[in-house]
């Protein structure tokens, strides 16, 4: 994952944050880079898929469904999205 040359722009990063805050109905301060969606924020797998779906739609990327397991916190989401952006914007 660290080998990716693509990095997220500040705008993309804040977009990701906003999506997660909105889907999980959180305040800014509650979400940290490593707070767990499921353990700390009461997410279930449907909400996890909603995060993935919103990112695909809003950022125009395609994320494979099996990447969901990595998307358990904000850092995980960043890593997956970074990789998907690096792989091109469409499948």
């Amino acid at each position: 994952m660290s080998a990716d040359t693509t990095i997220l722009t500040a705008e993309q990063d804040s977009q990701l944050r906003e999506i997660i805050l909105e889907v999980l109905e959180l305040d800014q301060a509650e979400l940290t880079d490593t707070s767990s969606f499921i353990d700390d924020h009461d997410a279930d797998s449907l909400l996890a898929i909603e995060i993935l779906a919103r990112i695909e739609k809003d950022l125009g990327v395609t994320i494979p469904q099996d990447a969901l397991i990595e998307m358990g916190n904000l850092d995980g989401v960043r890593a997956v999205v970074t990789r998907s952006l690096g792989a091109g914007t469409d499948a």
Binding site: I49, E50, E56
Partner: peptide
Amino acid sequence: RQERPYLVNPS
């Protein structure tokens, strides 16, 4: 309406 038909909200 979506660019791709499956870009619906799962929730």
